[in-house]
């Protein structure tokens, strides 16, 4: 693991003599969730019974533990790791959507996050969600009204665009959200598992769009469990495990290491 964490990959804040242009600097970031967990906790001693032992407990979950890396211009970064490894939390923190407890995140522009869990307004129709999503990204209403047909077409959803989003299947709504976010050229785009959904046809279309965005000097993060789509689109991979950065560097090397780890710890 130390082999891929070396200088060449740019792990931990950049070397000052490095003349590549940094886009994002993540420096020793920690995220701690504090959750009021109700009910009993199954620990020895909790079996003394009675209502009195039932109390609300403040649990803390240290989701991201001191992660550092620097992303440079022109990189498309894959983020891998098992479920609950802190990938999505870290991406939300980078997008400025959840506060961090320690460390710093710097970026050239505010990254836009596109995630599977990201529901706009489920009670509204697909078309309204296109309008709102676009306006939230800063487009005018007029522009979005003109663009909405094109976006629906990209998502392959023209037929259902007048139905409320809550009636969509998870694949359909993920497609629509991707189409909305992909409408703009983001300087920094974070895609959380979005390419894993949708049929083969849509996947090809969305991968083509990611490549196009990358060529327009944008930086793309791709969080996925599909190693094929990571290898197809990324030129750098970061592996997180239990909130800690395990490896960072060349996609094939990091993925091989990850697979070896997964096989060793089934």
């Amino acid at each position: 693991m130390a082999a891929t964490k070396g200088k060449a990959s740019g792990a931990t804040p950049a070397q000052p003599n490095d003349n590549r242009k940094p886009i994002i600097v993540v420096d020793d970031v920690h995220v701690v969730y504090k959750i009021h967990a109700g009910g009993r906790v199954a620990t020895p001693g909790a079996d003394r019974g009675g209502l009195l032992t039932k109390r609300t407990k403040l649990r803390t979950v240290h989701a991201v533990k001191g992660v550092s890396f620097t992303i440079y211009e022109g990189e498309t970064v894959g983020i891998i790791g098992s479920n609950g490894s802190g990938k999505s939390t870290l991406m939300r923190a980078i997008a400025g959507l959840i506060p961090i407890d320690q460390g710093d995140i710097y970026a050239t522009a505010r990254p836009s996050l596109l995630g599977v869990g990201a529901v706009l307004l489920p009670a509204l129709t697909g078309e309204r969600n296109i309008l709102l999503g676009g306006m939230a990204m800063g487009f005018s209403r007029k522009h979005m009204e003109e663009a909405s047909k094109k976006i629906a077409e990209f998502a392959g959803m023209e037929e259902f665009i007048d139905l409320p989003m809550r009636t969509y299947s998870s694949g359909m709504s993920a497609r629509l959200r991707f189409a909305i976010a992909a409408h703009r050229n983001h300087e920094i785009l974070i895609i959380d598992e979005a390419l894993a959904v949708g049929d083969a046809q849509f996947r090809a279309r969305s991968e083509a769009r990611v490549r196009e965005m990358r060529e327009q000097a944008g930086t793309v993060f791709l969080v996925s469990h599909s190693m094929t789509s990571i290898l197809d689109t990324c030129n750098r991979v970061i592996w997180l495990e239990k909130g800690v950065l395990r490896a960072d560097g060349d996609p094939q090397t990091v993925i091989d290491e990850y697979k070896a780890h997964m096989d060793a710890n089934p």
Partner: peptide
């Protein structure tokens, strides 16, 4: 880090 970020036009997120 702050100086490096400033030199490259980076701003703090969140």
């Amino acid at each position: 880090l702050v100086a490096y970020a400033e030199a490259h036009g980076l701003s703090r997120m969140g």
